[in-house]
Amino acid sequence: LVRYRTISKIPQITLNFVDLKGDPFLASPTSDREIIAPKIKERTHNVTEKVTQVLSLGADVLPEYKLQAPRIHRWTILHYSPFKAVWDWLILLLVIYTAVFTPYSAAFLLKETEEGPPATECGYACQPLAVVDLIVDIMFIVDILINFRTTYVNANEEVVSHPGRIAVHYFKGWFLIDMVAAIPFDLLIFGSGSEELIGLLKTARLLRLVRVARKLDRYSEYGAAVLFLLMCTFALIAHWLACIWYAIGNMEQPHMDSRIGWLHNLGDQIGKPYNSSGLGGPSIKDKYVTALYFTFSSLTSVGFGNVSPNTNSEKIFSICVMLIGSLMYASIFGNVSAIIQRLYSGTARYHTQMLRVREFIRFHQIPNPLRQRLEEYFQHAWSYTNGIDMNAVLKGFPECLQADICLHLNRSLLQHCKPFRGATKGCLRALAMKFKTTHAPPGDTLVHAGDLLTALYFISRGSIEILRGDVVVAILGKNDIFGEPLNLYARPGKSNGDVRALTYCDLHKIHR
């Protein structure tokens, strides 16, 4: 019993810090008490220290592992850092350059016999395009090294910054494609005289377009951006097909006994025919423009016929181009109408809503002055909100995010209106959640004399007048207030005048 009563005193000691020596009952000389009392004092002292730490809000209350900052290894790049964003855009520009100039170089340097010394005699450094290609190869190699040090988000939505895990993730992902696209074939085969082989191998750079397509997928929600990307894709495919079309004609031209190829026909049409040795002929500019003209006309199913396939190889390629053109029509131009419709969806919704308003007016036989006010209010409210119901949009977000959005939407009023000066951010967040926005066209009466005042109004834009009878008592403008002081009276009061809008007004109100 003594032991039980001794232990039962522990909660009292913990909360009230009572010393055991003052209790005459606990001072009985028993061996059990002498053993338990020192333990009680020690526990009391420890609990006292913990309570003191909690009340003082000291940093040592938290466990040590929670006080440590997340460790980022040296030379690790955050995937959302500004440097990584700028670097990704730079790589994107280099990939676009590669997609345009690599097929052009591979096709127009394929057994090209233009006048001038061969590239091997001039030297590697004197070729501007080769120098640019070398810079692109170096940048792609540097990009691989950067990807080995860039964080990523795993399946659990955690940012991984450990170098080993980053390397394994990159090896399992895009490393092989990036490595093949970054191989400097110019340096590996330079001086061997195989410019045709170098041009063909350099087309491996186009593998990076797969990554670019995935990154550009984030802009699919913007109709104008999608339309622009589709047109660029169409032009890029036409450019690639033009390079292939020229390569076919250029390879067949020296081996044909009869002059029936499209390059021969082009030379005869523009007065620059090929001679018996295969030299001469149109310039590279004429060849490229004509090839691009043929691919565009074939892809769009126009086909004027002034550039036509004559050999079997050219006919087979033309059939493939027609098939590609039909697929592009289905996948690209078939979506253009939907994209344009999405661009004008706001206008369509406006006309639909206006039609419903006019049908309501016609069905209920609203008189002319009231009908005009109804239409003007709808037009003004639509121009202010673009038909978007803010309350319906915010309803799907958590309250903390709703408060931040409301604070942002009402920031101008909260910053410049005098009653809100000096208020804490928590108070402003709470008030912003209570605001209701209303609009009024010129001549609209917001409050009639004798109406119950259940709200306090803040003028965000425009001006109003307060009338008693036919006498203008006051004219209020931006950041002015009218209405009933909230919670100042037990019952809502009545208006002693009319409140009429002089201009288009936007008002925020808080109800009782």
Rank of each mutant, 00 (worst) to 15 (best):
E121S: 14
K172W: 04
P163F: 06
A247R: 01
G193H: 11
E221D: 09
T98W: 01
E158K: 13
D143F: 01
C122M: 01
L197H: 04
H351S: 05
L263G: 01
L266T: 01
I146T: 04
M179H: 03
V131E: 01
I96F: 01
N310R: 01
S308R: 01
I366D: 01
A119K: 15
Y65Q: 14
A449I: 08
T203N: 11
N250M: 13
H73F: 07
L92P: 01
V159C: 06
I138D: 03
A381C: 04
A107T: 09
P369V: 03
V159L: 05
R349K: 09
A440W: 04
G249K: 01
A225F: 05
R208Y: 04
V131G: 01
F101E: 09
L145D: 01
L431W: 03
L227F: 13
V226M: 13
A338Q: 06
R356A: 09
L110T: 15
A381Q: 11
I183F: 09
V289I: 15
A125E: 01
H351R: 08
L209A: 08
L229N: 03
L230E: 04
H79L: 01
P419Y: 15
I324S: 03
D217M: 08
R214L: 01
S345M: 13
A155T: 14
M231H: 05
H169M: 06
L299S: 01
R259K: 15
W262V: 03
A430R: 09
R362G: 03
A432F: 05
T437W: 11
I260Y: 07
S301R: 07
T300H: 08
G280D: 03
C406N: 08
I183N: 01
L188C: 10
I339T: 03
K287T: 01
R211F: 03
L200N: 03
W382Q: 05
H439L: 06
M433H: 03
K434E: 01
F304Q: 03
M231S: 01
A338K: 08
V357S: 03
I284K: 03
A167H: 01
W87F: 03
V95F: 01
Y65G: 05
A106T: 04
G426C: 04
S301M: 05
Y97K: 01
Y344M: 13
D268P: 01
T98S: 03
L78K: 14
G223M: 03
G396P: 04
K215I: 01
L394M: 09
N156T: 13
I138F: 08
D404H: 01
A107Q: 01
P82D: 02
V100L: 01
A449T: 15
S258N: 12
I72L: 08
E252H: 03
I361D: 01
W89T: 03
K272V: 01
F175Q: 01
F101Q: 07
W382E: 01
R218P: 03
P282E: 01
P398S: 04
H364P: 02
L323N: 01
L201A: 05
S192M: 08
F304C: 10
L409I: 09
T203M: 12
K66Q: 15
Y97S: 01
Y65L: 07
S283E: 01
S277M: 10
G193N: 05
Y104L: 01
A247T: 05
G426K: 03
E115G: 14
H264W: 04
I198G: 09
T352G: 10
L209I: 05
R71V: 14
T385W: 04
Y274P: 01
L343E: 03
L109K: 05
N310I: 01
R429K: 15
R362H: 13
H162D: 12
L176H: 04
L134R: 07
E375W: 08
F397Q: 01
P273S: 03
K272E: 01
L200A: 04
I189K: 14
R356T: 12
F333D: 03
L176K: 04
Q402N: 01
S331Q: 01
Y219H: 07
G278H: 03
W87I: 01
H79C: 01
G191W: 04
S194P: 14
E221K: 08
V289E: 01
L279S: 13
I144H: 01
K272D: 01
M322G: 02
K215N: 04
V136M: 03
L94D: 05
A182H: 01
A125C: 01
K111Y: 09
F296N: 01
D186T: 13
L401E: 01
R371V: 03
E359D: 04
I138H: 01
T438L: 11
E64L: 14
F175M: 05
G305I: 01
P282Q: 01
A432H: 02
A338D: 01
I260R: 05
S412L: 06
N410Y: 07
I270C: 01
W382D: 01
P118L: 14
K287I: 04
K434N: 04
H448Q: 08
H162I: 11
W89N: 01
T300S: 03
W174L: 05
A204Y: 11
H239L: 01
A449E: 10
A224W: 12
M231D: 01
I284A: 03
V447W: 04
A99E: 01
K418L: 09
E221Q: 13
I339C: 06
L409N: 09
G173T: 13
S283Y: 01
E376I: 14
R165F: 09
V132K: 01
T424C: 09
A167N: 01
L263D: 01
C417S: 13
A238P: 01
V180T: 13
W262D: 04
E196H: 15
S276L: 04
T438Q: 13
P398T: 03
A291R: 01
I332E: 03
Q402K: 04
H73V: 05
S81C: 04
I166D: 01
E64V: 05
A119Y: 07
L67S: 03
G305W: 01
L266M: 03
A106S: 04
N312K: 01
R74M: 05
P163Y: 05
V159K: 01
K84P: 01
A225T: 05
L428I: 06
S345K: 03
F185V: 05
G278D: 01
G223L: 04
M251F: 09
Q365A: 10
G267A: 14
A204Q: 01
Q365Y: 01
N156Q: 13
A247S: 01
T203V: 11
V100G: 01
N154Y: 05
N265L: 13
G426W: 01
P103D: 01
I72F: 12
V212F: 09
H162K: 10
A181G: 14
S297G: 04
G267V: 03
N156Y: 08
A224C: 14
F420V: 02
F304I: 03
E252I: 03
S161G: 11
K395V: 10
A225Q: 06
A182D: 04
I284W: 01
C427L: 08
L414H: 01
R165W: 09
E195Y: 10
A155V: 11
A423P: 02
W245L: 01
S277T: 08
Y124K: 01
Y104N: 01
A99R: 01
I198H: 06
L110W: 15
G422Y: 01
M322P: 01
V95P: 01
A330Q: 07
W174T: 04
K425P: 12
T203I: 11
S277V: 05
W240M: 03
L197Y: 10
R373G: 02
Y170D: 01
T311N: 01
L200P: 01
C243A: 01
W174Y: 05
Q415F: 14
A224P: 14
S192R: 14
N156S: 13
H364M: 03
L92H: 03
C417K: 05
N306I: 01
V302K: 01
I198F: 14
R205Q: 01
G271F: 01
L374H: 01
T290Y: 01
V212P: 10
P254I: 10
H364Y: 04
L279K: 15
L370V: 01
T120F: 04
C406Q: 10
L93K: 01
